[in-house]
Amino acid sequence: MMKRVKRSKKRDERNVKDPFKKLPNDLNVEILMKMPPRSIARLRFASKHLSSIILDKEFTKLYMTRSSTQPRHLISVHRGGSNMQMQGFHSLSQDHASFSNHDKVSYKLDPYLPYEFTPPVRGLICGRKGTKMIVGNPSTGQFVSLPKVKTRRQEILSVFGYDPVNDVYKVLCMTVVTKRSNMSRGGGDVVPWEDIMSEEHQVITVGAKQKWRMVECKHPHRHYSGHQGICRDGVMYYLASYKQKRSLMSFDLSSDEFNVTKLPEDQMLQQYGSLTNHTGKITISSHAYNSNLDLWVLEDANKEVWTKVAAVIPPVSDLLGWLHTILFRFWGILRTGEMIFAPLLSRNPFFFICYDPKDKKVREIAINGIGDDSDTIQVFFDHVESCMIL
């Protein structure tokens, strides 16, 4: 005989007294659209009626459409220490960024497990430490764990992206294997050498029935585990060594197909080129020691057509107007054309600068409360906030 489950009186009372149920649906949506993502995530527990709206994909898309017109800086901060590890995210308006005008969310991590995050995609972000991975919404503080990557190797490259054809988020992971081979040396001698290639290619779809699956790659290459990949229009891009040359690899999330695009024969590009977060087109940057910044923009992937744009960047001491010995890293270009530079080492307060090469103007943005020696900081921009519940 089936056991009857008693319904909670408190839950029934909450449904009856739900004030939002009496309001027109359009007004409820308008109220939610004015709220920050973290408040929306909490409201789903306070009102059953609002919860049905919040969990609707159409509302999530509507909220993201509005957020896309208000891009933000996203600062990932992992705070170390012997007692407690914390992961925090600071979100700042790109139009009115200041240390006093930002939102902050944080959550506790496993002890001594600083996650390295990939660039956010449509409001979500993916972090990895070894074979452990998490995906979450930094605007709400909600994160979920993914199954461990199926590998015994630790040299892993992971890329996070969105498949618009199937309306799902996916993660691509690659690991390397060292193969022993032989090569000929002068005089007819044959000596062994090591050929390091990316062998395992795995994909997981973020969702309830998530599971890693192997995918085939017909272009043997070696990924650069120290670099990050990006996702554009349903295609993941990352740099790799293909036929002993630095090349641009791409992975179509809907077809599971890999492709390779040759890079221009430029010495600086081949040695120091890195993918740059630049709105619109795939761009590879190479930053020389003499402050020259070369940007290689992919105009046509099929024909492998690249355009080189050179920019002369004044020394940071000239931009800021004070002497220093801080080393800066170029992080990318905003949709406004401003270039982002941040210190290589953490400082308190942490700051970064936005330089407009057209108007020769510079903005310094500082965030108080972060930047200690134990902090690990990552900077992302053109971040679109999402109210998506995982």
Rank of each mutant, 00 (worst) to 15 (best):
S100G: 08
S100N: 10
D103K: 13
K104W: 15
K104R: 15
K104Y: 15
S106A: 11
Y107K: 02
K108L: 13
L109K: 14
L109G: 15
D110E: 13
Y112F: 14
L113K: 15
L113M: 15
Y115N: 01
Y115E: 04
E116K: 13
F117Y: 14
F117P: 03
F117D: 02
T118W: 00
T118E: 15
T118I: 07
P119K: 02
P119C: 01
P120T: 15
P120D: 15
V121T: 01
L124H: 02
I125T: 14
C126M: 12
G127I: 04
G127T: 07
R128I: 06
K129F: 10
T131Y: 05
M133N: 02
I134L: 03
G136V: 04
N137L: 00
N137P: 01
N137M: 01
N137E: 02
S139M: 07
F143V: 05
F143W: 08
V144Q: 06
L146Y: 06
P147G: 08
K148Y: 05
K148I: 01
T151G: 00
Q154G: 09
E155A: 14
I156P: 04
I156Y: 03
L157C: 10
V159A: 07
F160A: 00
D163N: 12
V165L: 14
V168P: 07
V168H: 10
V168E: 11
V168W: 11
Y169A: 02
K170G: 03
V171P: 03
L172N: 03
C173D: 00
C173N: 00
M174A: 12
M174N: 04
T175L: 00
T175A: 11
T175G: 11
V176D: 05
V176P: 04
V176M: 12
V177I: 09
V177M: 11
T178Q: 08
K179N: 12
S181T: 14
M183C: 10
S184H: 12
S184M: 14
R185C: 08
G186I: 10
G186D: 14
G188L: 05
G188C: 03
P192V: 06
E194P: 02
I196S: 05
M197F: 06
S198I: 02
E200N: 13
Q202R: 13
I204E: 01
I204F: 01
V206P: 03
V206M: 07
A208M: 09
K209I: 09
K209M: 08
Q210P: 05
K211E: 13
W212Q: 03
W212N: 03
M214L: 12
V215H: 01
E216K: 09
C217P: 06
H219W: 14
H219N: 12
H221M: 00
H223W: 03
H223T: 04
Y224K: 12
S225D: 12
S225W: 05
H227W: 12
Q228Y: 15
Q228H: 15
G229F: 07
G229H: 08
I230V: 11
C231K: 02
C231Q: 13
G234Q: 04
G234Y: 03
V235A: 01
V235G: 03
V235R: 04
M236A: 09
Y237S: 09
Y237I: 07
Y238W: 15
Y238K: 05
A240G: 02
S241A: 11
Y242W: 15
K243Q: 15
K243R: 14
K243P: 05
Q244I: 13
K245C: 13
K245A: 12
R246E: 09
R246D: 01
